[in-house]
Amino acid sequence: MCPEATRSIATKTTQTNRVATPAISAASDALPAGAGQPAAIAVRHCSFGYRDDPPRPALAGVSFEVASGELVAVIGANGTGKSTLLKLIAGLLAPEEGDIAVGGREVRGPDLGVGFVFQEPRLLPWRSSLENVALPLELAGWSRNAREARARDLLRLVGAPDVERLRPHQLSGGTRQRTAIARALALEPAVLLLDEPFSALDALTRERFNVALQSIWRATGTTILLVTHSISEAIFLADRVVVLAGRPGRIVAQVPIRLGRPRTLVDLDASIVSDASAAIRAALEREDLA
């Protein structure tokens, strides 16, 4: 009678299952995911180049995995193929070599189980916040009432409950990005890809957003792969930091962040943070010298 409702319940069930898995185990050792369960994201020997003139190689032989419920940050300088990596995982680009699997299935194109938050909010300027958040649900055929209710919940979840009726140009940069995150979460994706989502925000707002993102992650149990420029952001959020370097980009280090959860901004002063930070910097600089 009401497919959306059935579907909603079904996804909720899977979500509960995911939350039940030990996703928030502090500072997991980050290498391959839990035995028996396929990795949420598995990238194997991936290479990709843009066919511009002259051709622009972007990634060379990249391999790594992200366990279900894990939060992994990808860090690297400009041009090391960070965004390309996310687009490959999202199925927006196809690798030239190697293969990619999400939830154990090979990626052959965009998958509704994968949410994507771009560097820019990319909201439709003619729609209100609520309608923007509801877009994926609308495209998936949800009824108006069901999708509006869900979009309202999501806006509350991302901390932007009062902007339902406002259009993007009436929102602050931060609220726009919150709305974009809410939209990415609309279909309860098992995997959420974030491409430098906070790079346009000022430092203070950014810190607040990192705290908010952490609680969203905890609330939804989604596997998150976050691309960032900022070492402190990577350390604050991630269970593990994948360091990309070179042109084309290669993985030069994977640094586990052994910090308890939930983390607070104060935790950023801990010695473990400076150690991790030093390790990441060393990896980046080694590559620069080479």
């Binding site: 927006l92 194109g109 965009p110 509704l112 990319r122 495209l139």
Partner: peptide, 13 residues
């Protein structure tokens, strides 16, 4: 905006 069309692709429009 091509970026918006890419959003459409992500959600399999």
């Amino acid at each position: 905006d091509r970026q918006l069309l890419e959003v459409g692709r992500v959600y399999r429009a």
